[in-house]
Design a protein around this nucleic acid. Sequence first.
DNA 1: TTGTTTATTCTTTTT
DNA 2: GAATAAACAA
Length: 744
Amino acid sequence: MIDVQPARPVGGLESIPLNQVQIDAVHYEDGPQLVFAGAGTGKTRVLTAKIAFLIERKGLMPNRIFAATFTNKAAREMQERIERLTGVPCKGLWIGTFHSMCARILRREAPSIGYDRSFTIYDRDDQIALMKKVLEACQIDERSMEPRQMLQAVSRFKNACTPPAQITAKAVSFYDREVARVYETYCAMLARLQAMDFDDLITNTVYLFKRNPDIVRRYQNSFDHVLVDEYQDTNTSQFFLVKSLVGDRGCIFVVGDDDQSIYGWRGANVENILTFDKAFPGTRVFKLEQNYRSTQSILEFAHAAIAENTNRADKKLWTSSTNKGEVVVTRYRNDQHEAESVCAGITRLKTSGVKAGDICVLFRTNAQSRSFEDALMRARIPYVIVGATSFYERKEVKDCLAYLRLLVNPMDDMSFSRIMNVPARGLGDKAYELLAGKVREAGRSMLQIITTCDCAFMGARAQNGVGELRTIFSLLSELKEQPEGTPDALLGHLLEISGYLKMLEAEHTEESQARLENIDELLNTLTRWSEQNQGRTLEDFLQEITLATDVDKWEQKGEAVNLMTLHCAKGLEFRAVFLVGLEDGLLPSRLNFEDPAKIEEERRLLYVGVTRARETLECSYAMQRMRFGSVLAMEPSRFVEAIPPQTYRYVDMCRIAPLPPPAPRASAVQSFPSRQAAAREQPVDDFSQDTVSFRIGQHVVHATHGQGRIVNLSGFGDELRLTILFNDGVRRKLMATFADLTSA
DNA sequence: TTGTTTATTCTTTTT
DNA sequence: GAATAAACAA
């Protein structure tokens, strides 16, 4: 095009330090680009620099750039950095998650696909509630077809952009036809409620583009460049979306890492990244392999972990850092032991000068956070949980939001049914059924019916309740039209006139107190938001909070330790990471045992966790874990066992720090002494002469397998089995009496 | 119709 | 062991 002559001193872009590959990727301008960016290789930096390059050097207007990121937080931070670098205000830049940007498009174009602009966005809870209604309407027993499973099927169809009619046409078996019927009904209901679920935001935008050539052309013409972060986690509908925005132009730049693809279960399609060059001919591939984040030993450990996977583009991260660091794998007695010891480790780190905010505990499932919360609380170490039942998922908050949503979208019967009897106004199941019947008959929404009809078909008590609701909503909609009807004022009034506050105030329980505080918090949030977002509407607020990701809601406070799931941790980094619960059945999850592809995804999850660490990494597993309220025996994760032992230091806390004597719970101790307790109490018996020579952690030599280390003992006497981790990386279980072993 | 008790099922991971 | 659904009493 134009030859780039940086006549003026280029302040911004050059202040980002980049290596040669990164520079090449940023400056390339001859067509589609795919950047393979391993963990910690400066992916965000390249993406930021690329956008800055487009604005600063190519003179693109910010509002002509479309950039999809994985969280809104990342988007905000990137936008700020670009503004600082280029000195160009980037308010108009299209940057955010696919979901928020599609919502932005759909708010404008909704009428073209038969929706109102004020449509409601349904979150997961709403989806489940709706699916239950759908199953009821289809007269399907919830037990034969689980709502969550149906939702997953529906989500699969939507992600592949297959409309109900096609599924119905293809359905052969009875089951398939039932699923198709559910899908059809679910979509129809959403449309009637003027609601969209998360998947709809993407697929409806794709439909919009597909059916309206003029609209897609308009959007194509309005974007000069399309960029996508974390491309390995895009699904098929997102691919279609990107494709239609790009058209046959080559103005696309994607960044990703197939090794970090961890969202297959929600429809992400790794093939998107692996076959990118087929979809966008003439693609130039860039590979970032120099890691700027982690120490040598962490990288080696990470590579050993991921190298087991078969379906991956070959690459290996390297670092020029000479800082060796150390990876520790620790075995604990049980989950509590693990939590307490990790807690002690955190205290040690803090005294050695690591800020709490630079420490993170990572686990596979949310339920695992509990034992760490307990331990941290006891140790008086402040912590934050990223993604735990968030504020906006609390009952009382959702109730308030349901009132507000209904005010915005009167078609939203799901929200209506949530609040129609909260607080209690004599509108129970029966009243609901009567109303639902009228809805089918009249083709109007519940709120519309109760505000426009006298409801003589209901009992006297119910009519009274209906009257209350009618008053509440007529007052609120009146206020909403007034200039003083700001979002926070609306909520304040609503809490008063609905009697919601009174209901909680009357309770006088600890719980009701907490709820009142949460409502107060919501009110404060809304007030602050209204001040900061003058001119924006209640609709905007509601959309913002339903599309916020867990990380968006997280403020990384310097003085609090972070707890989160491995999925949440994507894209983040910490000086010190504790990767806990590395047990078979947990990581990998038992539910993915049968499917090798899913096992590989679980392994990538481990890889993501490991590569979050900058300086120290402690991986751990416990021999026993509380689950379902009972104690389960656990085996170390197969992933850890497959990692060559020379890449880490093994610490067996079961031997180093045996638990203090069990609490004097007489009955428990007497009736069920655990095997270990028994072994502790009677260290000398007939077999102990033989067994005593075997200890966990002991180094041994096997006649055929060579050197190894005992990692586990089980059974007694003749039955004594040794689990030995041999230096070839293979773990074998051997009978002590037959194994030809000598002490190393 | 409402609030309480009991039974059951359940845990991946999230926009 | 917790959260939800069904069952039941008031």
